[in-house]
Nucleic acid binder design. Structure first.
Lengths: 359, 359
DNA sequence: TTGAAAGCGGTACCAA
DNA sequence: TTGGTACCGCTTTCAA
């Protein structure tokens, strides 16, 4: 089944139901036709083809069917670059996060991808890999790709950083690390949660609580936006104050010496509250290797409720922040911004304490 | 510092060093200028602006400096959609995978993003979320976005699926699940590795080995491409045969009854080989909850060497497949295809057994 | 050294 | 119901 088509400049024909083009290399390869080519093949104008292809009205039924048939034969696939340019909207949103090795981020990106796709948007993903420079470069790049909005889990912070974002003049939603009131922020209330976590731990009969905040106070940590981690730590401090538990004890590293000292000195049953689950898992492991039993000798609690917790023991007590909901909300808020719906406001997801065997 | 600029149709001016446009809503917002606008402002042609902006030769030094200065003031940011359309290359590659909750996939995507970015490409990410339909839709969509190539961890398989991919007529590299010789494939040799894993376990003094292959033989599993999982299982069978260990014992589920029976019946020290780490972690947990000690009563081995293994005990014996290397190689192979370098061929990454306390 | 104009593939509006 | 055409923003070639 071979059939010649009037075609400008290229040698092309229909082969096995596909539109085929013989290249200079004499290979046969199948290409996607353009609207112009379809118009030529059907003997109609480009506008008419567009009407058929996009279901616009003002076209005779037979013409439409003939065009659609030809388009199918020619293997037409719309060029979204051209379409975006002409329509003035790209149908893409940009997502910027530090990396995917943190299960919190990967789940979050997964959730956004799902809901974005359902709403006809697709994702441009930029990972910062821990570098503020790469993050800003990526953001600028995404803006240049005409993304209609950005969801950012910022590594950067500060006046200059915010100005750079504002000058992009596109809708932005921040997640995880807040920047300022100038950006819609979708997050859990880490501070409140950690305060309540302290209450919860005290209720369970613990008399003193240490807090593990990786990198706290180190110079390196200060280089990046630590809003989220800071909030969690502040919540711990709030709780300690409210419960009159004395001085907060904040450890920047997961070291046995420090933990051992904490366990031995002081009165009241000890517990360790960790700023995120992976840290808590390391603590559990360290305690086990030193034959400290959990929760008999010390309680441990995490934050994030990452999926792996269901597979390890003791089942870590943690906080479930409904990350799917967070992703959905981040996207829907961004969509509101894109659609200039000015009722959009910050959002705080709900949370639940997940019980376990570690407290 | 305010300065008027000759500008068509819009009320615009320079404010605080930024190009500003007063909208109908009477808000002041900063927009990105186009080449045409810069040309107008500088009193030169678009071509000249292009020469200045893209460092092309054939432009007087002073003209160039003047244009660059104006472009900066006007906050020029190139429109990559238009650029891609005009240049005929998008600078984007598409990545398709099932999801990100599997640490193997998220690490892999992370690795690809890094190397792609270093090479001036950015990522369009599509997740299949377990649906073959969504996967194919996404692939078609990416092709329409004019990605220059695709890296796919396919969920689909079969003649029809392959034909659909081939008809896209863009470079494709498959990873993890192989389709056929028609596609460059980058992967670990799961079959060889699992065979050697059996040897290794036998060397350690184990006399019988069961294999855990989640979903094996179930109808649901057959719906998706199970190449990778099948290869691993076949490797186990190869090993069992070579070592004369009798009939392979393959369990499709992680159930205590099955495992208990396996532990009790038969002679020789038992070991459980798992098709991936998360499964092995569940096994470890199940064994602990039934007071079966590892590795004294039973050995356990996983595959993938996911990062969390470093944080839990007993340290699981596993296989490290150099996933960063895999990502790099997948991208570089794709780049070769894009550049029509026909020396490109399939690639098998190296691997190492990571020792642990579970064997 | 510069300008003018014809694309890239689609969209959208106006006239026929 | 159709055709024609001027865009969208940038690139590239040819002529001045």
């Amino acid at each position: 089944m071979e059939q010649n088509i009037d075609f400008p400049q290229k040698e092309c024909y229909i082969y096995l139901g596909y539109f085929v083009c013989a290249h200079e290399r004499n290979e046969v390869s199948i290409i996607s036709a353009t609207i112009k080519e379809i118009a030529l093949a059907c003997g109609v104008s480009e506008g008419t083809v567009d009407r058929a292809l996009n279901g616009r009205e003002g076209i005779k039924k037979e013409t439409k069917e003939r065009i659609l048939q030809t388009a199918k034969e020619m293997g037409y696939r719309p060029n979204h670059l051209a379409r975006s340019l002409a329509r003035g909207r790209s149908g893409a949103i940009g997502v910027v996060c530090a990396g995917l090795s943190n299960p919190f981020f990967s789940s979050f990106v997964e959730a956004i991808e799902r809901v974005a796709y359902e709403n006809g948007y697709y994702l441009n993903l930029i990972l910062a890999h821990g570098s503020r420079e790469k993050e800003m470069e990526g953001i600028q790049y995404l803006a240049g790709r005409q993304v209609e909005g950005l969801i950012i889990m910022p590594l950067g912070y500060g006046e200059e950083y915010e100005q750079a974002l504002l000058h992009l003049n596109i809708p932005i939603v921040t997640v995880y690390n807040r920047l300022s009131d100038k950006f819609i922020h979708v997050d859990v209330d880490g501070r409140l949660i950690m305060k309540n976590a302290v209450h919860k731990i005290v209720e369970k009969g613990y008399g003193r609580i240490a807090y593990l905040d990786l990198g706290y106070g180190t110079e390196r940590a200060e280089q990046n936006n630590r809003y989220s981690m800071n909030q969690r730590r502040l919540g711990y401090e709030d709780g300690i104050r409210q419960e009159n538990l004395g001085e907060p004890m904040i450890f920047p590293r997961c070291e046995w010496e420090t933990i051992q000292t904490f366990l031995q000195e002081g009165s009241g049953k000890p517990a360790i509250l960790c700023s995120f689950d992976n840290l808590a898992i390391r603590v559990l492991n360290m305690l086990r290797s030193h034959d400290v039993s959990v929760p008999e000798e010390v309680g441990v609690m995490g934050f994030d409720n990452i999926p792996i917790l269901n597979s390890i023991s003791p089942r870590l007590c943690s906080v479930d922040c409904e990350i799917k909901d967070l992703g959905k909300k981040a996207f829907s808020s961004l969509l509101q911004l894109i659609n200039k719906d000015d009722t959009v406001c910050d959002y705080v997801t709900s949370y639940t304490f997940t019980d376990g065997e570690s407290l």
